[in-house]
Computed example of a mutant assay.
Amino acid sequence: MKDHTRKRHIAKTITWRIVGTLDTILLSWLITGNPLTGLKIGFAEVITKMILYYFHERVWFSINLSEKGIIRESRKRHVLKTFTWRGVGTLDTMLLSWLITGNPLTGLKIGLAELLTKMILYYLHERFWYRINYGLPNRN
């Protein structure tokens, strides 16, 4: 069963990165009016997001919040982790957009638009994966 869930997590990771990158490309294109700029931001983000996500996971793995009254695997921990990741991800998008376009206001617009769209898309992505059984052999 462990191999099945690992495959599920890998598939979820890949599908989310695809959805997230397409969202960034589309938003960047719409905001800048330039499809090439959208592609540049989206593809740069794939690399930076993987690096940042790895370090985010390592930091959260090393934090022991049970000493502070929050159980290590609690919903509070997951909510905090979700918000910190969204903050890191949005900041990354804003900085990349600023660097690629040369305009800090454009970076801010893309980051703020992404903040809303990513939350909606992530919810829909999670609902989709909740409904399918891939990687869950014992689920009815």
Rank of each mutant, 00 (worst) to 15 (best):
L108R: 06
A113R: 12
W29L: 03
L95P: 07
V19S: 13
D92M: 11
I63W: 00
A44P: 00
N64R: 11
V46K: 01
D3H: 11
V46D: 09
N103D: 14
D92Y: 04
G89L: 07
T24V: 15
R58V: 12
L136H: 09
L80R: 04
T13Q: 11
T82V: 07
N133P: 03
N103P: 02
W60F: 11
L105M: 14
W16Q: 12
L112F: 13
I120Y: 04
I110D: 12
A113G: 13
G111L: 08
G111E: 06
I14D: 03
R86S: 10
W85L: 08
K7W: 06
G38I: 08
K7A: 15
D23V: 07
E57Y: 01
K40S: 13
D23M: 14
T15I: 02
P104A: 07
S97T: 09
W129P: 04
L27T: 13
R127L: 14
I63N: 00
E73G: 11
I10S: 01
Y134Q: 06
G111K: 07
T15P: 02
K40T: 13
R6L: 15
F128A: 11
N103Y: 03
F43P: 04
K109Y: 09
I41S: 13
T117L: 13
V88K: 05
T15K: 03
L80H: 04
D92V: 06
H125F: 03
S62Y: 01
G111P: 06
H56D: 08
K68D: 10
F83A: 14
A11D: 04
L96P: 03
T84E: 12
M1F: 08
V46F: 01
G69A: 14
R86Q: 15
M94F: 09
Y123F: 12
I41F: 05
L96A: 02
G69K: 12
V88Y: 10
G33N: 08
S74V: 12
W129D: 01
L26E: 14
E114V: 03
G20P: 14
T82L: 14
H9V: 07
D3P: 10
T101Y: 00
K40G: 07
T84G: 07
G42F: 00
N103M: 04
K7Y: 02
R8E: 05
L39W: 13
W60Y: 02
